[in-house]
Amino acid sequence: MADAAWNGDWRAAEAHVRVAGEDWDERWSRAELLQEVAREDDAWLETWRAAEPGNCDAATSTPGSWFSGPGRSGAAASPARSPETG
């Protein structure tokens, strides 16, 4: 998924979050991963946000867009170590 995003395919990132459905913990985990991917290169994220300006998943995938409060580490898996990035 990370490679697809870095190659400009924001739809792969959108699907990565969407398939979590209403499992909110999983959605947050996936948004955290996307934040890490965007820290490397966010061109795909900017394209996604422009294409779907009202998409909350795109907004929460923006690095620094939300506070990791008590009980959340704020540290997502590194894209290089995550099985989701391939």
Rank of each mutant, 00 (worst) to 15 (best):
G86C: 01
T62R: 05
F67A: 10
E52I: 01
W24P: 00
A31R: 09
G71T: 01
R30H: 03
G71D: 04
D41I: 12
E14M: 06
A76P: 00
R49A: 08
S78N: 08
H16Y: 13
E14L: 05
A12Y: 04
T47W: 07
P70S: 10
S78H: 09
R18Y: 14
A58K: 07
Q35Y: 15
H16E: 05
N7I: 00
V19D: 04
A75V: 14
N55Q: 06
P63M: 13
A13N: 09
V19W: 05
P70V: 10
A77W: 07
A31D: 10
A31G: 11
D57K: 00
S73I: 03
L33Y: 10
V17D: 01
R30T: 01
T60D: 06
S29A: 08
G64S: 08
E36M: 12
T62N: 04
A12M: 08
E22P: 13
A12P: 03
D23K: 02
E22H: 14
D42V: 11
G69W: 15
T62F: 06
A4G: 05
S65D: 04
V17R: 02
S78G: 08
A75F: 12
V37A: 06
A80H: 01
W6G: 02
N55M: 05
G69T: 07
L34G: 02
L33I: 02
A50E: 15
G74D: 00
R27G: 08
D57V: 03
R49G: 03
G54D: 15
G54Y: 09
E84G: 00
S82R: 10
V19S: 04
A58W: 06
D42I: 12
D3N: 10
N55G: 07
D23E: 05
S65F: 14
L45A: 12
T47Q: 11
A43S: 12
F67D: 10
W6A: 02
A4S: 14
G21K: 04
E84L: 15
A2E: 03
S82P: 04
G86K: 02
W6E: 02
E26R: 14
T60M: 09
P79Y: 05
E32F: 11
T47L: 11
P83K: 00
W10R: 03
A75C: 09
A75R: 09
F67G: 03
S29L: 13
L45M: 13
F67P: 00
W44C: 07
G54F: 10
H16M: 06
